[in-house]
Design a protein around this nucleic acid. Sequence first.
RNA 1: GUGGAUGUAGCUCAAUGGUAGAGCCCCGGCUUGUGGUGCCGGUGGUUGUGGGUUCGAGUCCCAUCAUCCACCCCA
Length: 416
Amino acid sequence: MGRKLQSIRGVHDGLPADVARWQRVENAARQVFSCYGLQEARLPVLEPTDLFVRSIGKETDIVSKEMYRFTDQGGDDLCLRPEGTSGAVRAWLQAGLTRSGIQRWYYMGPMFRRERPQKGRLRQFQQIGVELFGVPGPIEDVETLAMSWALIEALQISDVQMEINSLGCPACRPAYRQILVDYLEKRKSRLCDTCRTRIETNPMRVLDCKVESCQAQLTDAPEMLSHLCDDCSGHFDGVRQGLDALALPYQINPKIVRGLDYYSRTAFEIVTDQLGAQGTIIAGGRYDGLIEELGGPATPAVGFALGLERLAMLLPESKLVLPDVAVIGLGQQAQAHALVAARDMRAAGLSVVHCGSGSAKSLFKRADREGAGFVVVIGDEELNRNLVSLKNMKDGSQQQMSLDQAIAVCLKGKMP
RNA sequence: GUGGAUGUAGCUCAAUGGUAGAGCCCCGGCUUGUGGUGCCGGUGGUUGUGGGUUCGAGUCCCAUCAUCCACCCCA
């Protein structure tokens, strides 16, 4: 179609059929999160560019080439947020909540990254994010993972796995990184091109390279988990013990890496193989250093983000909510009464559509397409007797009764 | 940013380089107060867009846009 007006590439509309599915996720999230004592925050979509540069990391793909960045009319350097954690931390600091005890937040909304779109990857996409501020763990890590799993269960999603890892901390990660780089350098000639550059840019990424010949070189590669410092090691043990106590199914995946610089210690993902190349549904972990990095007091924190569109793809088609009753008025005089009848039925708690004007045939056709279980017909005949005709669209039966009786029948026949 | 596939009616798809079609949907009629099944009829297209080759292009070539898939990266 030669559409002159189109949405921007990778920016999709949420049509009612999509939104119905999203709302199932949102409602489940609100319900599960509130059970864990979280509260909702609503955060800006627009933030100063510097926030993301400082928190996500200047060298990351997100900041270096994926941000929608512009200068506004006042000369300010702004970005559409590519993720939520940075803004949440900024808001928490700005509101002066650093001494207000533990804060447990969730938020939902659009994020923007200028990537090449494909299945499960959009330029504007929605995330539901969770951030717990002032929690040292490992108990809170366990609760966070358990909560994310509870959401998966609430949505009755199967075929997903929870995987965990520890990324270490500033005390032990640099030393491990050096060990890994040394190991990779020795095999450099047998690695693929991208892995060779990854040795410089992000050596841990080499570990989960999809090229088989690379994997063949990495069978005895050093893993972060065996190079954790005592504190990190104890923390990771604590997480595992907690998950075991809750009997949560999880796997340790030493290859989980984080693209965003601010993560430390616990990293986790909930993944599926149902979504092609974009298998990560939920990802998160601990970011003990970020708040201090952004100028706040050293505060431990943990969180995760969920890709709403990705998660929604795992849900069966949601049925759109159909009206209970369609009202048909036949004749000018009756139309006025049909309007009143519709209003009264709504006041009684029914969802009602008025079929408008037209021939009786077209009105009934319209009523049928609305999918309502019942049709209330008001014409001159009904008007004279002060009754309505109630038609059951399932079996085609129809009889006259008072409006109150019709309301009672509709309320009774309403599908739960 | 790289590679591959695709783009024809509202939707799903046909059309050896030679007059753009079908099914579904929609609208109307059979039925002027009755839908969903049936029969009959009808609306609907600058073949994504822009160039080129050709007597002639939906078809071949180039560019561009979009979608899908993968790489990269990530939710």
